[in-house]
Design a protein around this nucleic acid. Structure first.
Lengths: 344, 344
DNA sequence: TTGAAAGCGCTAACAC
DNA sequence: GTGTTAGCGCTTTCAA
């Protein structure tokens, strides 16, 4: 890499000190009362030499780098990729650049990324936390590193958080099903203590209960992240098993679960919604190709990511550690998969 | 943010100079012949104080930051998200962290990202270049900034490049169609001079020609990036219009075009492959839900991204600007959509 | 064996 | 008005 021109090069060329150049280039010529002539010359030479400031040096000086660290579960998952996209945009608007990394829902990777980013002096972190990473997050608080949790949080840790209205969204989805005559409603969710899942599950349970239905524990299937495709397939086989009182509707707690479920349901030739009502949390491109339109909860990813960045920047710029909790409302997009149940 | 412990803090605590600490912590105690006792103590104190090196300071000192800049067209596009994922992994393996940004196929955004990343002193860039950005790329060469173009390149600019075997992949795809009896094969591609598209189109034309078919210009439809969905829909309507001699097969030059096309074809109730043979460049989750299995070209995204990072790092570490061109072989996954044409 | 000091590029308090 | 200089955290040369 050819040497970049520094403030010093300009100073030499013009025949002034580096301080002068710095003042002029930072628009502080008024405060420093730099001569009009000199200022002009400095600006001209800087432009001629195509000067570009070294943000690393500035970062060292100021102790802030105008860089944010983004840790998502998996950037190749369209859900997180979309969030990343919006975060990039909002960060840019505010003069920040974004470092990213994927935790794969693994504690160790998450910790490594946090360390890497902190060593690189990011000004703050946006994190979709991994199950069991409370201590990692607590440590950030201890160090008073600005950060915000996105998409999910912990029940027992008080932090800046931006999440969707998980409980209420799921509640209204299930309520829609009960209202439409479904009485044996199953749910497939990820097996994690993180709030987004717990809230969705609770929303489901509350809706079941409020409809006067007695919840059966076999309706709730929790699958692990690893190998979820296999587990989802098994779960569906089991939930639809007629000999043990099959469910008449299913809700899926994430879009990855939904997509995999649709594949299985498609293969099994189950009729939706006649044999099985259905609602998905989050959407997918694949829905458009299913023979029935799918009812789904549409998170406002745009607002979630914007608010996450804004909350983080607020936190960076303030001294007192006031925590901010944002819940972003979602909406429900109604398709045929949840329509009034036909009596047989 | 609470002040982080620096090498100076350790030095004071132990009662030695910062130089000593630096030697020990960088494993240079042998060269510097630091006393065993002292070394031990330094390491202990560093661990106790939970010392973490400030990579910004190191970057300033060395003039390298162990950071790469990744510029893709759109990180929310699953294709680029997947590349980003693999780049992240490969970069990490080599001790690099990744800054990312999306160009949206826009010249100005691309230039802004390049500037931002260079000002942040990235050691190199991985770029999916925008149409018409030759001058931006040429400038990088002039400044001898290490970089590699990924997924696409320019005919008239000599650079490090990692791309898929666009021409040959498309050639064999179309050949498969001609071999299976299709004679009027259309193609929908993006309207861009970038090599990936041009090569795919050329592969298509060559295959047509080699099959002894006379190419008709109306078979080739180029759609703009902006508003591509609308244009794809129109293109399909036109290509399938019976009054003007409809095509009997279609190839789609990217997965975004494929997905949109499938939606239209689905809506139009066209029978694949009986009414229309079909092959896609790149795959999509949605294919699994189409009533017919789709034949598609599967790029080796893993290898593309790995090679891109490796090529870039090689370029960073070497002085002479030897350009490296890598073509990664793809494979074709055969489904029903391209099967032997039924004679009517 | 150890440490003082210079320097990476930039900023700003302070002196002239 | 303009310039000197110290210092951000780290590495490394050179002197002790």
């Amino acid at each position: 890499m050819t040497k970049r021109v520094s403030i010093k090069d300009i100073a030499e060329k013009v025949g002034v000190s580096t301080a002068l150049v710095s003042y002029v280039l930072n628009g502080k010529e008024r405060e420093a009362r730099v001569g009009e002539e000199i200022a002009k010359k400095v600006r001209k030479v800087a432009a001629d030499m195509n000067y570009q400031p070294n943000l690393i040096a500035r970062g060292l000086k100021f102790g802030r780098t105008k860089t944010l660290g983004l840790i998502v579960a998996d950037i190749s998952n369209p859900f997180f990729a979309m969030l990343a996209r919006n975060i990039e945009l909002e960060a840019q608007k505010n003069g920040y650049t974004v470092l990213f990394g994927s935790s794969d829902e693994q504690l160790e990777k998450s910790q490594n990324l946090i360390n890497t980013f902190l060593n690189r002096q990011v000004d703050g972190l946006i994190i979709t936390p991994v199950a069991g990473s409370q201590s990692q997050i607590e440590e950030l608080k201890t160090k008073s590193v600005p950060f915000v949790l996105m998409d999910r949080g912990f029940k027992d840790v008080e932090t800046n958080t931006v999440v969707t209205d998980n409980h209420d969204a799921m509640y209204s989805a299930v309520k829609l099903l009960t209202k439409n005559g479904y009485r044996k409603i199953g749910i497939i969710a990820y097996d994690t203590p993180l709030t987004h899942m717990q809230d969705r599950i609770q929303g489901y349970k509350d809706a079941i209960k409020d409809a006067g239905i007695r919840f059966q524990s076999r309706w709730l299937v929790k699958v692990p992240f690893q190998d979820y495709k296999k587990h989802v397939a098994e779960a569906i086989a089991q939930l639809l098993d007629a000999t043990s009182n099959a469910v008449d509707a299913l809700v899926f707690a994430t879009n990855s679960i939904s997509v995999q479920s649709l594949k299985v349901i498609h293969a099994k030739n189950v009729k939706v919604p006649d044999d099985l009502g259905m609602i998905s949390f989050d959407e997918s491109d694949t829905f458009e190709f299913f023979y029935t339109s799918i009812t789904y909860i549409k998170q406002n990813l745009n607002e979630i990511s914007e608010k996450a960045v804004q909350s983080l920047i607020k936190s960076i710029n303030s001294t007192q550690p006031k925590t901010l909790k944002v819940v972003v409302p979602s909406k429900i997009v109604i398709g045929q998969s949840s329509r009034q149940k036909k009596m047989k």
